[in-house]
Amino acid sequence: MIEQYLYLAAILFTIGAIGVMVRRNALVAFMSVELMLNAANLALVAFAWHHGSFDGQVATFFVMVVAAAEVVVGLAIIVSIYKTRRSTSVDNANLLNQ
């Protein structure tokens, strides 16, 4: 019963990983990271259900808090990069390379 949730979480996590590796728009890559976080959340909630304890749900709650903080800072970074370089492609952010 719980396996199907875990398989779904694994599939979502993999799709998110593909997004991070392939997409070059920083925003889409960032959304893929969010997808990976959510896949981990699903596994946590499924395990909480399986073990009949609230610890997994509390862990999910904390992951959501951290994700919210991360999105705020990450989007601010993307906006400030866009302000100076007029692009959100991760390929163009290569100032340290030059």
Partner: peptide
């Protein structure tokens, strides 16, 4: 999965706040 609190939080925080932030950006 018997997590109604997380159900509400997921909709409020993710679809409400985080995705709106993404769309604004």
């Amino acid at each position: 999965l018997d997590a109604p609190f997380l159900f509400a939080i997921q909709i409020i925080v993710y679809t409400g706040a985080i995705l709106m932030l993404f769309l604004f950006v």
